[in-house]
Design a protein around this nucleic acid. Structure first.
Lengths: 244, 244
DNA sequence: GAATTGACCTAACATAGGTCAATCAATTTT
DNA sequence: AAAATTGATTGACCTATGTTAGGTCAATTC
């Protein structure tokens, strides 16, 4: 089946957790949508706004972010191509966080009503969407643990492992590492650290031989070592079909 | 309608966000369940186990928790009476976190299959369950922000405000404050701090007149002040019906 | 090709919060 | 009621991380 629809990526992602019938699959592909190419740092949703559309990330990276009253930024989740960004606010009146592109990115904008209708009419799609939300919750819990209870080195190692594994699961990581599209300031915002300390910590990991960097490219020469330093286990990512 | 079923609390909670028909409401009440009274610190679910039942908290408090490889504990969410604890793992094969009672608590144990069936057959219930999961996700994001980007005083003030507002929304808070059922060590585990520092910070809040403590009882004499110190806004709790 | 910009990097210093250890107070057990 | 346990409190000290203030370099822009 040629992937003519821009939503093929989404359909594939959804069917990664639950078997979708070919009808279900086709219905996802048939969702109405507009394609947009967005510059880095473009807002897709702003806290306080009513969510009107559901963006699906077709290429590039995006993140969710919140600000304190004093203007400090915390990145609360990262997203790679294929993920639906607005399931989190699909049934809520007002957005509780901001969504921004990290890199230049293509998105498909699906009208909220169309997606809700699809979910209401197709239990298997609803099931898949629910799992997708639950997995995101699980990742959010692990981030809370990471930020609350691990030191800077473990935190950073953990994040690098997570990104590596998630890219790998989407077939987006080469065998020689991956391009991490975040500045050190953004890494700090994701980890609850300052950019300065991220820099120091990257240097530490590098000189310990745990990572090899070349500009934004990261290679992990000994997965087991970085995994141990980062106290990383992929279980919370719930990769693969959920049978039970 | 007399609340004969122990699940009345759950049904009320679900219908807090979405209108349920009386049929839907009755179907929730008719779920098969076993009632248990549990001691403090009893495990309801363990990381790595397959979730087989869905616990609904009828009275008392519970929390979700994760441990690092070194044994540090992070409480990742708090739960008050009326909340369903296992929607988070209802569609996942393996639990990614632990759930424990905080106080002595009564729970209703609903077989996983029964709940899934109900959700599959009643779109309004599915809708309500989804919202309940989404609200929990939103709270999780705010916790990440709180732990990652606020200092100890703001963190603690924020948590105290959140608990006050959630108890109030459930009608569980008196006009003269509430009983916070957590030890200072548990507060630390929820905030990414040590018990010692929680103690110091409580003292600071107290001597600034922002809270009044008597044993575990907390009163907030000037809501606006504590709210400002904690940089708290209740928006992320998404209290009330979601119309859109 | 000078100026500007954004990201990376470094060093010196400051501090919020952690660690350790002791004491006290309240509650439960014997 | 002694003893034991659990949690709260406090003090002295330490360290991981933040802050400030600058550098270097490469990529754009004028």
């Amino acid at each position: 089946m040629p992937e003519t629809s821009p939503l093929a990526l989404l359909a594939r992602k959804l069917s990664g957790h639950v078997a979708l019938s070919s009808d279900d699959f086709a219905a996802v592909l048939a969702l109405p949508c507009q394609i947009r190419t967005l510059d880095p740092s473009t807002y897709l949703l702003r806290e306080g706004d009513p969510p009107l559309q559901c963006a699906v990330l077709l290429s590039g990276f995006a993140y969710r972010q919140k600000l304190t009253g004093e203007g400090a930024r915390q990145i609360v989740s990262l997203h790679v191509a294929g993920e639906a960004l607005d399931l989190q606010s699909l049934y809520l009146d007002v957005a509780d966080h901001n969504i921004q592109t990290l890199t230049r990115a293509e998105v498909a904008l699906v009208p909220r009503a169309a997606l809700r209708e699809l979910i209401q009419q197709r239990p298997a799609v609803a099931h898949a969407a629910m799992i997708s939300v639950l997995v995101e919750s699980s990742i959010s819990r692990e981030w809370t643990l990471n930020i609350g209870r691990r030191d800077a080195q473990a935190r950073l190692a953990h994040l690098l492992c997570e990104v590596a594994m998630r890219l790998d699961a989407q077939g987006l990581a080469g065998p020689d590492g991956y391009d991490l599209p975040m500045t050190q300031e953004q890494l700090g915002d994701a980890l609850g650290l300052t950019a300065v300390h991220v820099n120091r910590t990257l240097k530490t990991l590098e000189s310990a031989g745990l990572i090899v960097r070349n500009r934004r490219h990261v290679r992990i020469p000994a997965w087991n070592l970085l995994r141990d330093v980062g106290d990383f286990t992929g279980r919370y990512l719930h990769i693969g079909p959920q049978h039970a």
